[in-house]
Design a protein around this nucleic acid. Sequence first.
DNA 1: AAATAAGTGTAACATTTGTTACAGTTGTAC
DNA 2: GTACAACTGTAACAAATGTTACACTTATTT
Lengths: 235, 235
Amino acid sequence: MKIEENIQVALTHCPICSAIPHEHLLNSLKNVEFQKKSFKKGEIIAHQGDNFEHLHILTKGTIRTKMASEEGEEIEIEIINAPKPFASAFLFAQKNSFPVEVESIAESEIIMIPKDVILKLFQENLNFLQQFLTFNANKAKFLSQKLNILTIKSIKGKISFYILEELAAVQKKEPHQNSFQMRRNQTQLAAYFGVSRPALARSFSQLKNEGIIAAKANRVTVLNIDKLRSILAAL
Amino acid sequence: MKIEENIQVALTHCPICSAIPHEHLLNSLKNVEFQKKSFKKGEIIAHQGDNFEHLHILTKGTIRTKMASEEGEEIEIEIINAPKPFASAFLFAQKNSFPVEVESIAESEIIMIPKDVILKLFQENLNFLQQFLTFNANKAKFLSQKLNILTIKSIKGKISFYILEELAAVQKKEPHQNSFQMRRNQTQLAAYFGVSRPALARSFSQLKNEGIIAAKANRVTVLNIDKLRSILAAL
DNA sequence: AAATAAGTGTAACATTTGTTACAGTTGTAC
DNA sequence: GTACAACTGTAACAAATGTTACACTTATTT
């Protein structure tokens, strides 16, 4: 099977494939019937519960995964930009179905590589295996952090947790920084937390009135980190 | 290092080690400085956030993992019986710290095997790798199911989801069975859902009054599965 | 069998969050 | 600059859940 240029480029930048030497990757995939699919903005790539036996790699575009018991009530799990695998942490499960709804939110392209090919690659290439393990372990961490946010019951608590996490991330680079840029607006954050938008705004206002944080445009400044921490502790 | 009899037995029954031929396992571990630790009932094995570089295997006893932002508000994640690995899905993460609090709830014993030994075993033994992948993928599924329960906002919805899952599991063995034994009492279930016990009881009563389920002792009977499903759909 | 503990059902009330609606603010397209 | 859309702040009210308390039932122990 001929591999298109753009897919090759995507794969060399994919966090789990980049360990495989370029030629080796080409050789492996050349002999393999991997599938390619394209999706328009708004199309559903996979439904929650669908079975799969392939490693899915998003080679182009952006997807959003969300969880919903049926219609209605949905909360966003993750937004994934190409090139990256998705649902890879579930590939080797006994009953490996998509745990989330996967929606294309831009012109997207995915390729699908059969499970057994992946296993073969693991044997031929220890680095690939390690990257796969690391990528999935990071995903598991992400899931468990998400779990943590949902575990916190009060909206103020969720906000505090979120802000402390974001601030910690920023402080790794600039240790004394006490403000950061919000990556999500309130509407998105409310979906992420699984709460209503006005309720989120209300709690945000309370934190501001209490002098714990300040917010201007999409920049949040932490004024009293101890109080912020105590909100979590006091839960 | 000498390997005690009981640990050997435990390992051969451990879901990720059972693929390794007995002699091979002994040989591999003989040359390795793996650690052994014992814990009494109630002792904390690991705190949320602790770093680790070893695969942890519970060889004896029972542990409970729970999540908590600090003191107070805790929700139970999982109860694990020996012999099983724990936190294995996070072992290869970039910053691999315990995502949960791990508590011994019985006389327990664990062994710890360094990461690099595990990698070596992967290379020598494809079955071991596959079992490890499967075990972790199942964990990821478990986490995402847990996420699903927390995502559902109403208590009635959580109960419906839970009952439908349990019933589906039972029906795999007995297709026309419409009742099942509860593995958790209401107090435990409330902790699992992250809600208060009286609120759970109230919602339970409502489902009973509406004729959707019946419950006697710890046996739940589904009387109207369509209505149960529609509770989830209507969310 | 009595005593005790563990689990369940339920009620009154407090608290939090959701819902709906609208006004003000900011950003963007034309 | 105007018009429009997206975002934010906020208020009144509804609905759900938490809290506390207690009665009742069911296991377990003695």
